[in-house]
């Protein structure tokens, strides 16, 4: 039937380097594991974690007020500076924005995710998936640019509201202190809309994934036991979807916390953390303070990730 006779039970070692390497790794699986893990771990460990730690270290130095040079002596004074009123203001503003953006993202994302998970079938499922993936992956700057076109004074939104004779509504909104301004593109409202637009897609897929894991018969069981749809949602669906929402919020929250481009292009002149970091390390040349500023999102995200992990949100990623 073939040239292989199958005379011996144990075949001799294959000649050549490839055979020897294979045998070596088979006999020493731990060495093999180490060889596979070394390049990615060295890369991420040295380049990424190394730079990160070096940066954090710098937050314990200070800047000399007269020479403008970094004084390499351990001090907590930079953190003291971080907590002065102006900087605290920046932190609070950024964190509130991130929280509110996360909340609205969840509100808008949930119906899309819910529909895609429970009702969309076949072709529609694919359309929903791509309908989320394409905007999610579209160019970040182009998305911001699109909103500049929309929110500009002469742009589409003004035109649309004028057609509906609703310009007074826009003016009324813009005259509200804090969230209003000269036009939407230089107001917090504008910043908020663009943040939600740019980061909301990251919320949809995790929610959809966690909803898809809810078996249909659980919902039937709930309605069978006499729950109204509202009760089913509150007591069955929402708790089960929560890990997905938390997983999605990791992205919306973190991305909003660190962004400095959106508020720079669409928004008022008041700074967010990202802008403060950028300004401190750039024009001000105060690397220690910039480093101290980056500690804020790291600490917040650290707490957030720890909480998310406790809630089992990582399974929904």
């Amino acid at each position: 039937m073939s040239a292989i006779t199958g005379e011996q039970a144990i075949l001799i070692e294959k000649p050549g380097l490839a055979g020897r390497i294979s045998d070596f790794f088979w006999k020493h699986p731990h060495v093999f594991l180490a060889v596979m893990l070394a390049p990615p771990l060295l890369w991420l460990g040295i380049i990424y974690l190394g730079s990160l730690l070096a940066l954090l270290l710098q937050s314990f130095f200070s800047i000399d007020d007269y020479s403008g040079l970094v004084n390499y002596e351990f001090t907590l004074s930079t953190y003291g500076q971080l907590l002065n009123e102006a900087n605290l203001d920046i932190i609070i503003r950024t964190v509130s924005m991130a929280a509110i953006v996360t909340l609205f993202s969840a509100l808008i994302a949930f119906p899309i995710a819910y529909y895609a998970a429970r009702y969309a079938r076949g072709k529609w499922k694919a359309i929903f998936y791509l309908g989320v993936m394409l905007p999610l992956w579209s160019s970040y700057l182009v998305k911001i640019y699109a909103w500049k076109l929309i929110l500009a004074k002469e742009g589409i939104l003004t035109w649309f509201l004028a057609k509906l004779n609703l310009l007074w509504l826009l003016d009324a909104w813009l005259s509200i202190p804090v969230i209003g301004g000269n036009s939407l593109s230089v107001s917090y409202t504008g910043t908020f809309i663009v943040f939600v637009y740019v980061w909301m897609p990251f919320m949809i897929l995790p929610i959809q994934a966690s909803l898809e894991r809810v078996p249909a018969n659980l919902i039937e069981a709930s309605s069978d036991l006499g729950s109204t749809p509202q009760q089913t949602f509150r007591h069955v669906l929402f708790p089960l979807a929560l890990p997905g929402i938390v997983a999605g919020s990791i992205f919306t929250f973190s991305l909003t916390l660190g962004d400095y481009i959106i508020p720079q292009i669409i928004g008022s002149s008041r700074l967010f953390i990202g802008q403060a970091v950028y300004a401190q390390q750039g024009t001000a040349g105060n690397i220690p303070l910039a480093a101290a500023f980056t500690v804020v999102p790291i600490v917040i995200m650290g707490l957030y990730l720890w909480m998310a992990r406790k809630m089992g949100a990582f399974d929904a990623l």
Binding site: A9, I10, K14, K27
Partner: peptide, 16 residues
């Protein structure tokens, strides 16, 4: 296996 020591021999060198 057929009188030959098998421990330490990888699966791909066994005529099994």
């Amino acid at each position: 296996i057929f009188g030959e020591t098998a421990e330490g021999v990888p699966p791909y060198r066994r005529n099994v």
